[in-house]
Computed example of a mutant assay.
Amino acid sequence: MTIKKCTLDDVVELQAVSKDTFTETFQEQNSPEHLNAYLERAYNLAQLERELANPSSHFYFVLYGQQIAGYLKINTGNAQSEEMGDESLEVERIYVKKAFQKHGLGKQLLNKAMEMALELNKSKVWLGVWEENDNAIAFYQKKGFVQTGAHSFFMGDDEQIDLIMTKSLH
């Protein structure tokens, strides 16, 4: 298992793993129309290039053997999807392909986010998780995250609720 920082040169691979993991995770609970609308908006190449170019956002691949098994996106400052202040780091995306789950890769990606938060002198890490994603909620609770709020997330024009979960580092 290796964690590798993504660059603009990785945008095509990032798009592929983003679409694959998001689809695997949410296709059962969402209409194809809503899912496809989200994929086109969130993971088009121009959008991903803008995100990769933002100095306050960082993407990392997790490799299992030589294969890209998943990825992590973290944000600080004004790149955060909610106004959480300069002392916060957001884990915006943490996804592992189904074929590579149960190997501890999600835990390794979360550990990488925590390392980055400490390196950047952040006092808390936060993330949004779909209120119906019981496995992810349980995983984050086990890692010391607590629910501190909620916000809307749109899958196409379908409004859903993400729980905001936070972990203090000090």
Rank of each mutant, 00 (worst) to 15 (best):
N133P: 13
I68E: 03
G128S: 07
A113N: 05
L110C: 07
A113H: 04
A16S: 14
L120H: 11
G104S: 08
Y38W: 03
G128K: 02
E115H: 11
Y43W: 10
E51G: 08
V17P: 00
T23W: 10
G85Q: 03
E33D: 10
T76N: 03
N36C: 00
H103V: 03
H58R: 14
M84Y: 10
L72N: 03
G70D: 03
E119D: 13
K97R: 13
E83H: 07
D20N: 06
E115D: 10
E90C: 04
A99Q: 00
N75I: 15
Y38F: 12
H58Q: 15
V125Q: 04
S81R: 08
L120T: 03
V62F: 07
Y64L: 12
Y38M: 02
L35M: 15
S56C: 14
A117D: 13
V11I: 05
T76W: 02
F100G: 03
A79E: 07
K107A: 12
S88W: 02
Y71M: 10
W126I: 15
R93P: 00
E49A: 15
Q29W: 07
S31H: 10
N133A: 11
V62D: 06
E13T: 14
L118W: 09
L105T: 02
K122T: 09
E115R: 11
K98A: 12
K122N: 15
P32G: 07
K73P: 01
E13S: 15
Q15P: 01
S31D: 12
Y95S: 03
A46C: 08
R41A: 08
E40K: 08
K107D: 06
L45P: 02
K19P: 01
A16L: 11
Y60C: 02
S57V: 14
E33A: 13
D86A: 06
G85H: 01
L105Y: 00
Q29S: 12
H34A: 13
S18P: 00
N75Q: 10
N133M: 14
L109I: 06
L35N: 03
W126G: 08
Q67M: 06
Y71N: 12
P55W: 13
G65T: 05
R41E: 14
S123Y: 11
L14H: 05
S31N: 10
N111I: 01
E131I: 08
E40C: 01
Q29C: 06
N121C: 02
G65C: 09
L35K: 04
V96S: 04
E40V: 00
K122G: 13
P32A: 09
A113E: 04
D86I: 05
L118Y: 09
V129S: 04
D86F: 07
V91G: 01
S81H: 06
K112I: 00
V96I: 14
G128W: 01
K107W: 01
T21V: 03
Q67S: 10
L120V: 05
L14Y: 05
Q15F: 04
